[in-house]
């Protein structure tokens, strides 16, 4: 509706000289960010408060940590994306865990039609494995950059969302994430879907009583890879 657009914009242009009551404050100094030495503690504290489970591990040890978590949680069906990092897992995990099926998210969740992938996701999948691009200290959040290697529904539909995150990606907060990773001037574009995740899905809509697993994952498991101190952690 071209006329709707021009009518709306026309009215707005007419009103642009109308000042809002308070004086606009353009030049406020930016608020201090969390000091770096508190980042990790803040992330851990906030994530734990939001009912995420965190397993601290190493670059060499995280796959084994994954195996042991899948085992102890008796996960029978894990969905993983089609990405290079997952190739050894796809091969080894079923061998290490006899009851485990690993499904690769490599075909489109076809629109409308209830295809195999969609039905696996909604009916069989018990866990999905994701990789965070960054962790945010001030809010206790994981940044998931979706795309072919990180499908949107992978961290959403299965009841258990497992996210691998490396300590080297820890940032102060969302402001730094935007400056650091998505500066349009430098050609760093946002993905079709950038998601910040700060715990398992939840609701307090019924009489302010918190319940986890509203529509998304009931549990969030974070595999925290201490890649900065690889030598010191056994």
């Amino acid at each position: 509706m071209i006329s709707a657009k021009s009518n709306i914009l026309g009215r707005l242009r007419k009103g642009q000289s109308v000042q809002a009551t308070a004086a606009s404050r353009h030049e406020l100094p930016t608020l201090p960010r969390l000091p770096k030495d508190q980042w990790k503690a803040s992330f851990m504290e906030l994530m734990s408060a939001n009912h995420a489970d965190i397993v601290e591990t190493t670059e060499a040890g995280w796959q084994q940590a994954l195996v042991s978590e899948l085992g102890s949680r008796q996960i029978g069906n894990l969905v993983v994306a089609s990405r290079a990092e997952n190739l050894p897992l796809i091969e080894q995990l079923p061998r290490q865990l006899s009851g485990l099926t690993v499904t690769v998210f490599d075909q489109a969740v076809e629109a409308g039609a209830d295809t195999a992938m969609r039905s696996t996701l909604f009916q069989q999948a018990e866990a999905g494995l994701s990789y965070a691009s960054a962790a945010l200290a001030e809010t206790g959040s994981l940044a998931l950059v979706t795309g072919p290697q990180e499908p949107r529904t992978l961290s959403l539909v299965p009841p258990l969302s497992i996210v691998v995150v490396r300590e080297s990606t820890l940032l102060s907060g969302v402001a730094e994430l935007f400056e650091h990773s998505f500066d349009k001037q430098q050609g760093q574009l946002l993905p079709t879907n950038l998601v910040l995740v700060s715990g398992p899905s939840k609701t307090a809509d019924i009489q302010q009583t918190l319940a986890y697993g509203a529509h998304g994952p009931k549990s969030l498991l974070i595999l925290w890879v201490n890649d900065l101190h690889a030598e010191s952690v056994g």
Partner: peptide, 15 residues
Amino acid sequence: TYVNMISGPRKAEEP
């Protein structure tokens, strides 16, 4: 829990 930033429909290579 979620901050969902949508900058487009799925691209051809996205599943």
